[in-house]
Every structure is written in structure tokens, then in C-alpha cells.
């Protein structure tokens, strides 16, 4: 057929179906709601913290200004969360690898459920466990640590007599964030395409080499994402830390002495009931800092994941 001039047809309006509209409205609404809530929280924190931010230094608790008030708390928060993650992340990845690639099927299922169950234990229980069981149990080992590894600033000592140290808080936090990291990573490992595992095995990889070539890189973004989830929980954990940690407010890397900094969340929980006026504003200002740090951590994680998107296997 010879090519003739096609008449330009006016674009007909696509008929809108009610189902499409409702669904589009609902999902848009949900997206907007999240932003509104986030914005609302940020606004609340900022407004409530403002009096403390502009207040003269001697009216802030401690009498040395807001920065010096929040700094030890921020330090304690970051210190406990960082070391908790340092313990929990490798452990969680190992557990996930064991469950998905080493354990016989029955054991792997049972183990999976048990790990998930850890996540269901309320944090106050973890706190009590840390206080009554873990803290006394660390007394012996910490003495040993000071004696033989005291040259490392972390174990400088002198060891606390009650055992309610940063070390115990870190260990409790590690156990608490373990299940969430392990669950997310486990699902990612499980979804590694069989094809990639076979590719590695077919060029003569051992099981461990196969895991390193195919499974771990495939789960990389999940590992980072899950770790950040865990870090977020560790940063904000309140009750467990409030119960376990005996606070004296110093800024120190010494994990086993009795001179521990508190964390922002635990400090708010402990101080809030007896605070009035500007003290409350100062507490909320510390909350604002925690909010900003958590946001920052999540954005950092996203950047790390995106930087190697090309190689993620998603294409």
C-alpha cells in the first residue's frame, strides 16, 4: 500500500477506570502521609527544642550549654550502636549463610524461626536479662581483659564492680539487632539465582568460594540495608540501655569501666519524668540530634547501595 499522508488524529482522552483512580489515590495518599508524618515530627522537634537552642548556656542542665550537654549523650549513642553493629552484622551474615547454604533443611527452618522469635522479645526483657544475667557474668572476663589486653583503650579498666558497663549494653544491643539483620539478609541470600551459584561451581569453586563469588555479592545491598536497619534500632533503643547501663557521663572509649556515657534515648527516658521547663526542651533538642543522626545514617546507606547499582544484578 502506498504511503499516504496519515490524518493526524486528535488524541482521544484515555478513559479513567474507577479502580485505577482509587488505587492511584490510595498509594499517592500513603506516600504523602509518610512525608507529612516525617515533616510533622521534624517540625515538632525543632519547635520544642528551640527554647533550649537559644537559651543562655548556664540555664541548660549541667550549666555548660546545649552542645556540651548533648555531646556525651551523642557519643554514648554512637559508641554503643557502632560496637553493637560490629558484633551483630558479621554474626547475622554468618547465621544467614548457615541457614541458607549449610544447614540441612529441617534444622534451617527451625533455626530460622528461632532467630525470628528473638525479634519478638520486648526490649525491657532484654534489659532485665542484661542487668541480672549478663552484667554479673562479665565480671570475670573484664578483669581478665584489663589485665592482659589493658593496653587497648577499649579495655583499659578499671573494671566496673557491678558489671553494668558499656560492654554489656553493647552486647545486649547486638543480640537485639541480630534477628532483624539476619532475617533480611537470609531472604536476600535465599533469592540468589541458582544460575549464578552454578556458574561459580562450574568453574571449580568450592562451596565457600561459591558463596563469596555469587551469594555474598548478590546480597551486598541487603547486608548494608539490613545493617542500617539494625543500626537505626540500636541508636534509638531506650529501655534496655536505660536498665543496663550505669551512667556517670564521661566521654570515654573505655567499655568496661564504671564511667559510662549515657545514650540519647535512655537519657530521655530516665530524665523526662522529673524534668520541667527548659530541661524538657533540652531533652527534646537531644532527640532532634538523634533524629538527624538516624536520618543521616539511612541516607549514607542509600548512597553506598546506589554507588554500585550498575553491578547489583538488578539490570
Amino acid at each position: 500500500m502506498p504511503a499516504t499522508e496519515q490524518p493526524v488524529r486528535p488524541r482521544t482522552k484515555v478513559r479513567q477506570r474507577p479502580g485505577d483512580r482509587i488505587f492511584a489515590g490510595l498509594s499517592t495518599g500513603a506516600g504523602v502521609l509518610i512525608l507529612t508524618v516525617l515533616g510533622g515530627v521534624a517540625a515538632f522537634l525543632l519547635i520544642e527544642a528551640w527554647p533550649a537552642i537559644i537559651a543562655p548556656a548556664d540555664e541548660i542542665p549541667g550549666g555548660e550549654g546545649l552542645v556540651l550537654y548533648i555531646w556525651p549523650l551523642l557519643f554514648g549513642t554512637l559508641l554503643s550502636a557502632f560496637f553493637a553493629l560490629l558484633i551483630a552484622a558479621p554474626l547475622a551474615v554468618s547465621i544467614a549463610l548457615f541457614i541458607t547454604h549449610y544447614a540441612p533443611r529441617r534444622l534451617s527452618q527451625a533455626l530460622g524461626y528461632m532467630i525470628d522469635l528473638l525479634a519478638a522479645i520486648p526490649s525491657i526483657i532484654y534489659g532485665l536479662w542484661g542487668f541480672f544475667v549478663l552484667a554479673p557474668a562479665t565480671l570475670g572476663p573484664t578483669t581478665w581483659l584489663t589485665e592482659y589486653l589493658g593496653f587497648i583503650p577499649l579495655f583499659e579498666g578499671p573494671p566496673s564492680a557491678t558489671g553494668r558497663t558499656m560492654l554489656v549494653a553493647v552486647m545486649v544491643l547486638a543480640v537485639m539487632i541480630l534477628p532483624i539483620i539476619s532475617a533480611v539478609v537470609r531472604e536476600a541470600f535465599r533469592q540468589t539465582p541458582r544460575l549464578h551459584e552454578e556458574a561459580a561451581l562450574a568453574i571449580g569453586a568450592t562451596r565457600w568460594e561459591m558463596l563469596r563469588m555469587a551469594v555474598l555479592p548478590f546480597g551486598r545491598s541487603a547486608i548494608i540495608g539490613a545493617s542500617m536497619l539494625g543500626l537505626g534500632r540500636a541508636l534509638g533503643e531506650t529501655m534496655a540501655v536505660a536498665i543496663v547501663l550505669s551512667v556517670s557521663g564521661g566521654v570515654t572509649f573505655n567499655l568496661i569501666s564504671s564511667g559510662n556515657p549515657s545514650t540519647i534515648a535512655a537519657n530521655i527516658a530516665l530524665k523526662f519524668p522529673e524534668s520541667t521547663g527548659l530541661d524538657i526542651n533540652a531533652l527534646i533538642a537531644s532527640g532532634l540530634v538523634l533524629f538527624a543522626v538516624t536520618l543521616g545514617v539511612n541516607m549514607l546507606a542509600r548512597t553506598i547501595i546506589n554507588r554500585r547499582r550498575e553491578f547489583s544484578g538488578a539490570n
Binding site: 539465582p193 544460575l195 549464578h196 552454578e198 556458574a199 561459580a200 561451581l201 562450574a202 568453574i203 571449580g204 563469588m213 555469587a214 555479592p217 548478590f218 551486598r220 554500585r308 553491578f311 547489583s312 544484578g313 539490570n315
Partner: peptide, 18 residues
């Protein structure tokens, strides 16, 4: 498997590698 190489039905380069 190191002596006997294999090529699969669907191409399966490691996606995370160059």
C-alpha cells in the same frame, strides 16, 4: 569441575563482576 568446563542454557555472567 576445574577440568571440565560448562556453559549453561541461559547466559549467567556474575552480575556483580566486571
Amino acid at each position: 569441575r576445574r577440568q571440565i568446563g560448562m556453559v549453561f542454557q541461559r547466559p549467567n555472567p556474575f552480575p556483580t563482576m566486571s
